[in-house]
């Protein structure tokens, strides 16, 4: 896999960042990289990368998370080990950033080092079926707020347009034009379109850079 040393996943609240970050980390580890996944989410006390700790550990991915992550202690705390992401240049680092501009604020202390090293990809996860990013224009507005708060320029888009378990191939296909319009408005490339494994065979070959995902554990 061709990846920069640091990959950041940012985006609107509930756009699917954590699920994609976990899948991406597992994929990089499969490809033989030494991977660390840093949970920088200070917004949402539920649905954290730590929910996938067993899978990550089994794949050899180091999870950098606050001891309070997933503990029900509703503290917006960052892990002290997070500086490993910028200090240890032998790591392939994945950053799971919290939602919206509020979540991106947590990047602040890492931003100077990330920019200085300049070996990063900052991917914005977008979903046209989320009500506050339903149009390309609204989406661009949210992305600008995130960049303003986090200070790391977005370098690419991840089209994660989905309706949860009800997602049909048509739902994904009809989101391609939306993602392309966001791309046109921002000048950012669509790096990948993510789909659940079940839908993947039906779309393979029809959409470029299709990235299949396992859905991480969620409450039914």
């Amino acid at each position: 896999m061709d990846a920069k040393r640091i990959t950041l996943f940012v985006g609107h609240y509930g756009s699917g960042k954590t699920n994609i970050a976990v899948n991406y980390a597992l994929r990089l580890a499969e490809a033989g990289r030494r991977v660390a996944l840093a949970d920088l989410d200070i917004v949402n006390p539920y649905f954290r990368s730590k929910d996938s700790l067993d899978d990550l550990t089994a794949a050899g991915v180091r999870l950098i998370a606050s001891p309070y992550a997933g503990s029900n202690l509703d503290l917006p705390a960052l892990p002290q080990e997070m500086y490993a992401v910028t200090d240890d240049k032998t790591l392939s680092a994945i950053l799971d950033v919290g939602g919206d501009d509020r979540g991106a604020l947590a990047l602040g202390r890492l931003t100077p080092a990330i920019l200085e090293e300049n070996d990063f990809e900052c991917l914005a996860v977008i979903n046209r079926y989320r009500p506050l990013t339903g149009t390309p224009e609204e989406t661009v507005g949210v992305l600008r707020e995130i960049e303003g708060a986090g200070g790391v320029p977005i370098t690419g888009l991840v089209n994660n347009s989905n309706l949860g378990r009800e997602t049909t191939p048509d739902d994904v296909l009809s989101s391609v034009a939306y993602a392309e319009e966001v791309s046109r408005l921002t000048g950012l490339p669509v790096r990948m379109t993510t789909v659940e494994w079940g839908v993947y065979p039906l779309l393979s070959g029809k959409i470029p850079d299709l990235f299949p995902l396992d859905l991480q554990k969620k409450i039914e």
């Binding site: 509930g14 979903n127 079926y129 989320r130 009500p131 339903g134 309706l163 949860g164």
Partner: peptide, 9 residues
Amino acid sequence: KKVLMKGNE
């Protein structure tokens, strides 16, 4: 037309 929402939203 459907959207994906949290219950709170």
